[in-house]
Design a protein around this nucleic acid. Structure first.
Lengths: 125, 125
DNA sequence: TCTAGTGTATTATTAAAGTAATACAATAAT
DNA sequence: ATTATTGTATTACTTTAATAATACACTAGA
């Protein structure tokens, strides 16, 4: 599976898993009607407790991205891609807005912000 | 004093205090040779334990922004403004770079990022 | 029907971080 | 000198969040 965990990250493991799957669906790497790895399977391959995986999957269920089929597995629901794309958009828009708000609270000048933004975006462009 | 604490924030209180003072120095609101409020004074006015303030001040000392004068107080050192301006710059540059990296890991398109950025920056412009 | 695979719910444990309590040390001023 | 103010160091407590343990429930297939 395509999931990589950073145990050192302050971001909890279950959240890393949920986000990576969500973004994989948004990117089209995982499609509707496909099954995600079973709780125990992924737990084994990542050397984690099954409950950690289950928690990640529970989040995804709450957001209508995957659905449980008891005894069978968890399937990516129809329309998941659209939801994930939208969530990804919202997630990053919020993140950037928070960033901008913080620059303002700290009285960083608009020009300084622009400089930071343009530098970071040109390097990778 | 100008410090405002949000007890609900996930950001620890001592860190809120340290950052606000640092940014106040960067902005010129607090200048070199001025004293910051005493540990107990600020603790009283914010209804916090003195140690919480002390910890914030310790951070600022480690970064050469304030210096202790035992029995007297903590003074903003010469050159603090430059340090704070630089740190503020680094702080936000790092934050934005992390943001960009995360957009890339999630395969958000460059155009989508640009849209988010330009929207957030024009609204507030 | 039994087995081996699935997900789920509840509870307990652990770990980390933040904050608080306490006692100590230095300075200035009366 | 004594008092009141300052910062500091050590330790303990509390809380919260994450993760783990365990037992349960459902399904497919042999």
């Amino acid at each position: 599976m395509f999931i990589e965990i950073d145990p050192q990250s302050p971001q909890p493991i279950f959240e890393q898993i949920a986000l990576q799957i969500k973004f994989a669906v948004a990117a089209g790497t995982v499609r509707s009607d496909e099954f995600v790895p079973s709780v125990r399977e992924l737990a084994t391959s990542l050397a984690l407790n099954p409950n950690t995986i289950a928690r990640a999957y529970r989040e995804l269920q709450n957001e209508n991205i995957i659905a449980a089929q008891r005894g069978i597995g968890l399937v990516v629901v129809p329309g998941a891609k659209e939801i994930c794309i939208e969530q990804r958009q919202d997630y990053f828009a919020k993140k950037f807005n928070d960033f901008i708000n913080e620059t303002e609270r700290s009285r960083l000048s608009k020009d300084d912000v622009k400089q930071i933004v343009s530098r970071a975006m040109n390097i990778n462009k």
